[in-house]
Design a protein around this nucleic acid. Structure first.
Lengths: 351, 351
DNA sequence: AGGTACTGTGGGAGCGCTCCCACAAGTGAT
DNA sequence: ATCACTTGTGGGAGCGCTCCCACAGTACCT
């Protein structure tokens, strides 16, 4: 067996130097071949590749990281407890997109949960140590200090839902405004006129934009939006129930509800049923997210689909570009980069 | 802004050397303090800690990894597509246990999916590069080459369900034998006498052990097991249906069924219902895993609970011990290490 | 006084790589 | 012939740490 403890084990993994000796070239040349530099003759490249194969050479990541001052790793930071991460298909979809984009590189993805204070503390240390080349941030609250920390450390980062219209980080978002519009336009086209809206938490920028879309769609159709038809929810089922109850109390004659999430739509549906309103005959219902809930609801729920997987893909592409530039976009004084992906209305029996 | 491109940035992160200068000590002493060596006087230690705090020193992981030949990272390898990982609460529970054990260390956890061939190829490269100090292996099939690769590379590893009675890797398991026994003993105590068993895939060691427990419980109660009451399933709902159908065809008078998983129990339940058997009046039903399915079944399903989170905790504890020894247990010719955690029968209305 | 131990400390050597400078050899314009 | 440039190559320096040897200082035996 190869082992003799401690350092200087000679039977261990081959080094660049050994590959160079075997191929009859210098260290630098091997390095160039390994890293795909074009400034190597074909014959030399072939000789080096043969030596690499014969010796089973695999570069030492730590040495490379030390010398090159990069880690070839990026982190997906989830500022939530792990439980939520697994519960929501959102993350798994996004991860798939990220994974696809990363599969084409040598980069390694780290999944970091920062739900508790303790975990956040650790994360800060982690980032301060520059253990990753870049960071992907998902579901960040408006008052989270993380984006600022990242900016200060000059670590490239991409955020999945901008915190505000003035988001400084490179961001990827779905078209919440357009999503809100399309839901309302759809309801209008179905002949609905008294369309209520249950919003998400309004400290979430995307939820605000959905409201904007709702209002503008009505205005463009010649209906001045009635603020009493808008009620704030909080993305929960219970919040949906509460908002729906309030809305029915104020506007017994409403004929459609656009909920800012499928979960809230589920809550609204319960209240509508309890009060004897038929869906969609009496009240049409539209949700947001096109989650499993929407497909399994009775009746199946019309909902606005966000291209989560594509968003993950866009995030990683933008991040890799910033990492390649070796600095965050913001610190170069360049225009902010952002990608906004289109949503799609999935029509089902509820509307 | 700190940056000037390339190397030798002087405004960058402080190094050990700078901390040493600031504290008025040598490099070695700072290293000793950082790594918690006891061979430092209290006064010196205090001075160094002050300098570390003042400069905001954070060790460079790459340099440490290079010099010390360790990475302070371990991998949780899941030889499944990501989809299954997110779908099954098993993984999330286990991850919680692992996370808890790791929280007390400086170790970093990497989650690696190796569902496709391409991913497995990458994983092999990854391990060959010794990018982690140890590996946690979950849900490995009997014919998987991964354990052997790990052994050959002399990377410490712990596996979550031994592949056979002769498992060479350090392993953690729940007491499948005892779980099988307790299910049967429970049914016997309820007066059932013709107890059938739907097994899991018998190339899974744990499934075999459940059958062993089933047989021995019957024998110990004075009933010679009837092989015609045992039918092989495959852990799927469809497999449960098929096995149940077969069993009813052979033994119309059976009065209890012990299924090797809740999912198979769900399949069995459908067939029982279709054939007009009442649960538990005519046939008592017991499952395995105590999953969400068991709680939500009608009637709620009695099931054998495995302490998944505790298993995760045990895995990480065993792995950290091996990593601290700097070599796998097997390569030291020591006794194999293994932990077997007790199962618990959760009694519900189905039995 | 000498010997033997232990404690605490400094700093050299070296981990395996990348970066970059130096330079040889070739190419083509002047 | 000279100059300027390009292409391909070798190897020194250095990334920031850990390991370990050397050694000063102190303590306690003979």
């Amino acid at each position: 067996m190869a082992s003799h403890g401690g350092r200087g084990r000679s039977g261990g993994r081959p080094t660049l130097e050994e590959v160079a000796a075997r191929a009859g070239v210098g260290r630098g040349t091997v390095s160039r071949v390994i890293n795909g530099s074009p400034r190597v003759s074909d014959a030399t490249r072939a000789a080096v590749e043969a030596a690499v194969a014969e010796l089973g050479y695999v570069p030492n990541t730590a040495a490379r990281a030390l010398a090159a001052n990069r880690t070839d790793a990026i982190a997906l930071v989830v500022p939530e407890p792990e439980t939520r991460f697994f519960a929501e298909p959102y993350f798994s979809d996004m991860l798939r997109g990220v994974g696809a984009g990363l599969a084409e590189t040598e980069m390694q993805l780290l999944l970091i949960f920062a739900g508790s204070d303790r975990e956040r503390q650790r994360l800060a240390q982690y980032l301060a140590a520059h253990r990753v080349d870049g960071v992907l941030l998902v579901s960040v609250h408006a008052d989270d200090p993380l984006p600022d920390l990242l900016a200060q450390l000059e670590i490239p980062a991409v955020i999945s839902g901008p915190r505000s219209a003035g988001e400084t980080l490179t961001s990827v978002d779905s078209d919440n405004y357009g999503g809100g519009r399309s839901a309302v336009e759809h309801l209008l086209s179905r002949g609905r006129r008294r369309i209520a809206h249950i919003t998400g938490r309004l400290d979430v920028y995307g939820a605000q934009r959905r409201v904007d879309g709702y209002r503008d769609a009505l205005r463009d159709a010649g209906h001045e939006p009635d603020e009493l038809l808008i009620e704030q929810g909080d993305f929960t089922e219970e919040g949906g129930r509460r908002a729906m109850t309030t809305l029915l109390g104020r506007h017994a004659d409403l004929d459609a509800v656009f909920a800012g999430s499928d979960v809230m739509a589920a809550g609204a549906r319960q209240v509508l049923r309890e009060q004897g309103r038929r869906i969609p005959e009496d009240v049409a219902l539209v949700g947001y997210d096109d989650s499993a809930i929407a497909r399994h609801m009775d009746p199946p729920l019309t909902s606005v689909r966000q291209p989560i997987e594509e968003m993950g893909r866009a995030m990683i592409d933008l991040l890799l570009a910033e990492v390649a530039d070796r600095r965050p976009a913001a610190s170069r004084g360049l225009e902010r980069r952002q990608a906004v992906l289109p949503t799609e209305l999935v029509t089902r029996a509820s509307s």
